[in-house]
């Protein structure tokens, strides 16, 4: 099978290029396996990967124009030639490895931990099954950045718009019955940029490898803000 891989080494290349590789496909082969096969042939090729099971979120790449995890993508499902590029809109460090600093900074900015005004109880804080159900579809995010880097609003304003991943995380804590900083969290999202650059394009929903729906989470945030303001 023919693969065209984005190659760029800042010390050697003045501009990126696409390099062609032929890989012998085995039954059940995932894209990560193909990339490893390429790496075995060409040691200069670099990409991030770790668990190989869609849990760590390290190997998010852009394949034939769509962001996905290499480890959960069957090569047999891909159209040949398979064009593999780094996640869009992020500075390339080398080959398929991008600088994720901005993405992590946006995640950090939503204070992704439970906050309470009351002192922490000695035992765990209990939730009803209904309260717990509200976290489904929010807590499963593995931070692979497939969503944020497929979002046009994030491409244009990555320093100001928080992006679907950070907003999904914000919703995860706003909707958590154990968190007591809802007001503060919603206030922090006000303004034209952080939340309201989302125009419901829904690229994030289309590419999320965990099947999550950041657009719906963003909708919850907007609705809660509105409810809180009237």
């Amino acid at each position: 099978m023919k693969f065209e891989i984005y190659r760029f080494h800042p010390e050697h290349d003045s501009k990126p290029r696409m390099q062609v590789y032929e890989v012998e496909i085995e039954r059940g082969m995932m894209l990560r396996d193909a990339l490893l096969a390429i790496q075995a042939k060409d040691e200069t090729f670099t990409f991030r990967h770790s668990c190989g099971e869609g849990v760590c979120g390290s190997d998010g790449v852009n394949v034939n124009g769509v962001n996905m995890l290499a480890c959960t993508t069957r090569v047999s499902d891909l159209k040949e030639p398979v064009q593999v590029r780094p996640l869009p809109g992020r500075p390339v460090i080398r080959d398929l490895v991008v600088d994720m600093s901005q993405f992590y900074k946006q995640y950090q900015s939503v204070d992704p931990w439970l906050q309470r005004n009351e002192p922490n109880p000695e035992r765990e804080i209990r939730q009803s099954p209904e309260q717990r159900d509200k976290l489904d579809g929010l807590y499963e995010c593995i931070m692979c950045a497939c969503c944020s880097t497929s979002c046009p609003s994030f491409w244009w304003n990555p320093d100001k718009f928080l992006g679907p991943q950070a907003l999904l995380t914000a919703a995860r804590f706003v909707l958590d019955s154990r968190d007591q900083a809802t007001e503060k969290r919603l206030d922090a999202l006000e303004g034209p940029y952080k939340l309201f650059r989302c125009h419901t394009i829904m690229s994030c929903v289309e590419v999320c490898p965990k099947g999550l729906n950041p657009t719906r989470a963003i909708g919850h945030l907007k609705a809660m803000m509105l409810k809180d303001s009237v």
Partner: peptide, 13 residues
């Protein structure tokens, strides 16, 4: 509570 700024208001309008 001050959410009069452009974000929420513009979205609601």
């Amino acid at each position: 509570m001050s959410r009069r700024a452009s974000g929420l208001q513009a979205w609601a309008v």
